[in-house]
C-alpha cells in the first residue's frame, strides 16, 4: 500500500539472517537434525500457506492433504518424461485448479459446507487416483528416482517457505489482502463497498492450494515410492490445522510458533508412543479451543497490551499523585 517502512526492513533483514543460518544446517549435520529440520521447514511452508487463506477468512480448510497429494502425483507420474522444475510448476497449477473447483462449489456458501467438503476431499481424490491407476495402468505405486538427497529437499523446502512468506507479505499489502481483512471484519460491508467476496476468497484459496501442491511436489523424491495412501494422508491436513492455530493466525509468522515445538514433540511421541498420536492430536485441538483460542501469539499479544496498559495507568497515577 505504501513504501516499505523501516520496521519492515529490519524484520526482513532479521529474517534473511535466520534463513541464511538455517540454510547452513546441512553443512553441519546430515542425520537426525537435518531430517527433523526438513519436517519443520515442510510444515512451516504448509502452515503459512494454509494461513494465507484460513487466517483472514476463518474457513477451516482440511484440503491440505489433497493439494499435497496432487503435487506429489504431478511429479511421480511424469518424472521419467519431464524435467523436475516443470513438474513442480505443473503441480502448482494442478493444486490451484483443484482449489478453484472446490472454491466455486463451496465458498459462496457458509463455512460448514466448506469444512465438510474439504474433510473428504483428500479421500475422494485418493479413491479416484487408486481407481484410475488400477484401471489404466498395472501398477499400484510409482517410483520417483532423482539425484536429490535430503539436503537438496531441505533447501528447496526452505526456499518455498521463504517464497510463501514473501507472497503473504505482498498479498497483505495489496488490494486483495485489504479486501480479505474487510471480509474478515464484516462480509456485508465488504460486499457493499464493492468487493466481489466470492472471487476474492476463491483467488486466495487457489494461491494457498498452489503453494501446498508445490510442497507436495518437492516432497515426492523424498518418499521415493509413491502410493495413494501415503500421498493423500489425511493426517497432514489435521496437523497443519493444529500447528497453525496453536501458533496463531493473525500474524504471518504466527504459525511458525506452533510448527517448531509441535514437529519436535510429534517426533518424540511417534518414536516412543506411536499409538498415542490420535490422543495427542485430540488434546491439542481441545487445548486450542478452550485455552488458546487465538493461539500462542494471540495470547502473548493480549499479555503485552495488558502490561502496557498497566504501565500507562501506573505512570498516570504517579503524575496525579
Amino acid at each position: 500500500m505504501s513504501a516499505v517502512s523501516a520496521g519492515e526492513i529490519r524484520v526482513g533483514l532479521a529474517g534473511a539472517v535466520v534463513v541464511a543460518l538455517a540454510a547452513c544446517l546441512p553443512l553441519v549435520d546430515q542425520g537426525f537434525y537435518l531430517s527433523i529440520s526438513v519436517n519443520i521447514v515442510l510444515y512451516a511452508a504448509l502452515c503459512t500457506a494454509w494461513t494465507l487463506f484460513s487466517g483472514p477468512t476463518h474457513y477451516v480448510s482440511l484440503a491440505t492433504a489433497a493439494f499435497f497429494g496432487v503435487g506429489t502425483y504431478s511429479v511421480a507420474l511424469w518424472i521419467d518424461q519431464l524435467p523436475f522444475p516443470a513438474l513442480v510448476a505443473g503441480g502448482a497449477l494442478a493444486g490451484a485448479a483443484l482449489a478453484g473447483v472446490v472454491g466455486v462449489a463451496t465458498l459462496r456458501l457458509s463455512g460448514v459446507y466448506f469444512v465438510i467438503f474439504t474433510l473428504g476431499l483428500a479421500e475422494l481424490v485418493r479413491q479416484i487416483v487408486t481407481w484410475a491407476q488400477a484401471k489404466f495402468t498395472t501398477r499400484v505405486g510409482l517410483y520417483v528416482f532423482t539425484d536429490f538427497t535430503e539436503k537438496h529437499i531441505y533447501w528447496m523446502l526452505l526456499a518455498l517457505a521463504v517464497a510463501v512468506f514473501l507472497a503473504g507479505w505482498l498479498i497483505n499489502r495489496s488490494r486483495l489482502g485489504f479486501a480479505m481483512r474487510i471480509i474478515g471484519n464484516d462480509e456485508t460491508v465488504a460486499r457493499h463497498v464493492g468487493i466481489d467476496t466470492a472471487r476474492a476468497k476463491i483467488l486466495l484459496f487457489m494461491v494457498s492450494g498452489a503453494f501446498i501442491a508445490i510442497a507436495g511436489a518437492i516432497s515426492a523424491p523424498r518418499y521415493g515410492y509413491i502410493q495413494p495412501p501415503s500421498a493423500f494422508n489425511p493426517m497432514i491436513s489435521f496437523l497443519v490445522v493444529i500447528m497453525a492455530l496453536l501458533g496463531g493466525t493473525s500474524r504471518l509468522w504466527g504459525p511458525l510458533v506452533g510448527v517448531v515445538p509441535f514437529v519436535i514433540a510429534m517426533d518424540l511421541i511417534s518414536a516412543r508412543f506411536p499409538n498415542h498420536m490420535p490422543i495427542v492430536m485430540g488434546l491439542a485441538f481441545l487445548a486450542i479451543v478452550y485455552l488458546l483460542p487465538h493461539g500462542v501469539t494471540g495470547r502473548l499479544e493480549q499479555v503485552w497490551t495488558r502490561l502496557r496498559n498497566r504501565r500507562a495507568l501506573a505512570v498516570g497515577a504517579e503524575r496525579t499523585a
Binding site: 488490494r175 485489504f178 479486501a179 481483512r181 474487510i182 474478515g184 471484519n185 464484516d186 456485508t188 460491508v189 465488504a190 463497498v193 464493492g194 468487493i195
Partner: peptide
C-alpha cells in the same frame, strides 16, 4: 451501524474508496 472493528479509522474509509467505481 457497521464499522470494521479491527481496522483503524482511516482504513475504514479507504475500504470505501478502494473497490468502488
Amino acid at each position: 451501524v457497521r464499522v470494521l472493528p479491527s481496522m483503524s479509522a482511516i482504513d475504514n474509509v479507504i475500504a470505501g474508496a478502494a473497490f468502488g467505481h
